[in-house]
Nucleic acid binder design. Structure first.
Length: 307
DNA sequence: GTTCTAGAAC
DNA sequence: GTTCTAGAAC
């Protein structure tokens, strides 16, 4: 009965036809081995999840050379698989989380598929940023060290971290690029290359990381109250990420000619600061035109820079 | 994972 | 006041 929310990604990963996924799941792209969906509770302007599909067919006939492996049996069906024969797939149990994947001989191969797919996702995001805002900014690829939903998912998330769904400290810190809870794809790949089969810290230690201070990943400032951090993130995004892209040289003319447009946008969006899904907001012809005017409030930094 | 509620703690 | 922690969710 309990609606198993934690199995939602498993169901998506098992989909035979990603095109036929429920509208609610908002599929972005898919290929033979991965499916990418919009995060249902996006914690930034752009936030996608890249999942390895089930079954995940290994391309090589054998998993990576087991450094010291007893003859393995597939955890999924309990049957012995004798090497090179036709279809061997990565057991779903290996893809429950980044932790189980690390222990799997298929780790490198699954990561490779996620990397390739996420490259395409980043292309998509970058293009949309350019169209919507006339500039681009940081995008991170990372796994949560301790996920709450079953099935491996790579977060692809823009580092503005501006979203009304970002509601708690643990949300913020779980994506913070230096806190350590978010395990970047590059780092995980390096672990696999180095032969690591477990994460460096315990689950409890990772969870502790979520309890630290509210420190901006942009400026290093710490905030006492979550709403202050939220205001900072929003202000930084508008004033330091978006605004600089239109400050220089030839933009004067453009700015002038587009002033009316910008004003319209401003008033139109005043009620609800643009928080709609980015991909549905394409309407302007000129990339530069879509840059939102930074408006009046120059600097609404909180009064408590420290502690 | 989210939403909601409650009380304790700062 | 806001944050933190905990529990329930048919």
């Amino acid at each position: 009965m309990a609606p198993q929310w934690d199995k939602a990604l498993v169901k998506i990963a098992r989909s035979h036809d990603p095109e036929a996924l429920p509208l609610d799941d908002r599929m972005l792209i898919y290929d033979k081995r991965t499916i990418t969906i919009y995060d249902k509770f996006a914690k930034a302007k752009y936030h996608f999840l890249v999942l390895p599909r089930i079954p995940f067919h290994a391309s090589s006939s054998k998993p990576a050379l087991s450094s010291q492996g007893a003859p393995t049996l597939s955890a999924s069906n309990g049957k012995l698989n004798f090497g090179a024969t036709s279809s061997n797939s990565v057991p779903a149990s290996h893809m429950k989380s980044i932790s189980t994947l690390l222990a799997s001989p298929y780790a490198a191969e699954v990561l490779e598929a996620l990397r390739e797919a996420s490259d395409r996702v980043i292309e998509h995001i970058t293009k949309d940023m350019q169209e919507q805002y006339g500039t681009t900014w940081d995008i991170e690829r990372a796994f949560h060290a301790v996920p709450s939903m079953e099935h491996l998912h790579l977060h692809v998330v823009s580092m503005d971290l501006v979203s009304d769904r970002l509601k708690h400290k643990k949300h913020f810190r779980s994506f913070h690029p230096t806190v350590g809870f978010a395990l970047r794809l590059d780092d995980v790949e390096a672990m696999v290359k180095a032969g690591r089969r477990t994460l460096p810290k315990s689950e409890a230690a990772y969870e502790q990381l979520l309890k630290g201070p509210l420190m901006s990943h942009h400026t290093g400032q710490t905030f006492k109250f979550f709403p202050e951090l939220k205001a900072h993130l929003e202000a930084y995004w508008r004033n330091s990420i978006l605004a600089p892209s239109r400050t220089s040289a030839g933009d004067a003319a453009i700015t002038t000619s587009l002033k009316r447009d910008a004003v319209e946008q401003e008033s139109g969006a005043s009620a609800s600061p643009s928080d709609q899904p980015p991909s549905q907001l394409r309407r302007l012809d000129t990339p530069k035109a879509s840059v939102k005017e930074a408006s009046d409030s120059e600097d609404d930094e909180p009064s408590l820079p420290f502690r």
